[in-house]
Computed example of a mutant assay.
Amino acid sequence: MARRLLVDDVLDSLRERIVAGEFPEHAPLPGEHELVSQYEVSRVTVREAIKVLHAQGLVRIERGRGTYVNPTRSWTSLPAVIQALSTQGDPAQISRDLLEMRGILECGAAQLAAERIGPEDLAALDAQVTAMEEASAAADVEAFVRADLAFHAVVLAASGNPFVPVLMEPLSAVLAAARAETSAVPQIQAHAIVEHRRVRAALASGDGAAAREAMAAHLRQTAEDLRRYVTHA
């Protein structure tokens, strides 16, 4: 157990240093002896931490030469990718990328949810839209974002596919931050309330194709609002 904790400590530290840019793309990591000295751990501990970084795509091991940092596009660790983009990426591009990802996942989830949603789910959607309206009237951006996120969480869960909400969960923090930026604009709040009501109506109809299109229309409106009121690009 103690060695496992040491491995995790070294792993977390190296991952943070890579994400922070201390070791940029294609740069070598310090050698094994140097890492052993830096972290005051055994070679086995260092090797296990490097193996995990390699398995997550953050580094590549070149036999006889050393360990080198991979480009971000090669990483398979979602937390590392999120952290890197959040600290080094272009906020406007991150928002656009998030909307594209949401379109891939949430439109399909809405289609499934229309076929499986129950009265309790619909009541929960109504409650969140009402909470959005009340938060907007009170100029409470934090409460507005909470209700917005909760609405979408209901849709994801109502898809009936347990993998769908699990896939979205690691992005919850970055999605909340993106929502806080856009939801600070009153016009965007007004548009969001209208679009959420349309999504709710489509879900209640039981028409999967209509629900998919309603969610897609909502995300298109969000993308347009982002361009018009936030990025001006």
Rank of each mutant, 00 (worst) to 15 (best):
L5R: 15
L6K: 12
D8E: 14
L14P: 15
R15D: 00
R17K: 13
V19H: 10
V19T: 11
P24Q: 08
H26Y: 12
H26C: 04
P28F: 02
P30T: 00
G31M: 06
G31L: 11
H33N: 09
Q38A: 12
Q38K: 14
V41S: 12
T45L: 04
V46K: 13
R47V: 03
R47F: 04
E48T: 15
A55C: 01
Q56T: 13
R60V: 14
R63D: 08
Y68A: 06
V69F: 13
P71G: 10
T72Y: 15
T72Q: 13
S77D: 15
L78Q: 12
V81T: 08
I82Q: 10
Q83P: 01
Q83W: 07
A92Y: 07
S95D: 09
S95P: 02
R96M: 11
L98W: 08
L99A: 04
E100M: 05
M101K: 13
M101E: 06
R102K: 14
G103Y: 04
L105C: 04
E106N: 11
E106F: 13
C107L: 00
A109L: 02
A110L: 08
L112I: 06
A113M: 07
A114K: 05
A114V: 07
E115G: 06
G118F: 02
P119A: 15
A123H: 11
L125G: 12
D126P: 07
V129Y: 12
A131V: 03
E134C: 06
A137F: 01
A139H: 13
A139W: 11
A139E: 15
D140I: 08
V145Y: 06
F151K: 04
F151A: 01
F151T: 02
V155W: 05
A158P: 07
A158G: 09
N161E: 11
V164E: 02
V164I: 15
V166C: 03
M168G: 01
L171H: 09
A173H: 04
V174R: 02
A176H: 11
A176S: 12
R179W: 09
T182L: 15
S183I: 00
A184V: 07
P186V: 08
I188F: 10
I193H: 06
E195D: 14
R197K: 13
R197M: 03
R198V: 02
V199H: 00
A201L: 09
A202E: 08
A204E: 12
G206Y: 11
R212E: 04
R212F: 06
E213L: 08
E213D: 10
A214D: 04
M215A: 10
M215S: 07
A216C: 01
A217M: 09
T222M: 10
E224T: 10
D225M: 03
L226A: 07
R228H: 10
V230Q: 06
T231Q: 07
A233L: 00
A233N: 03
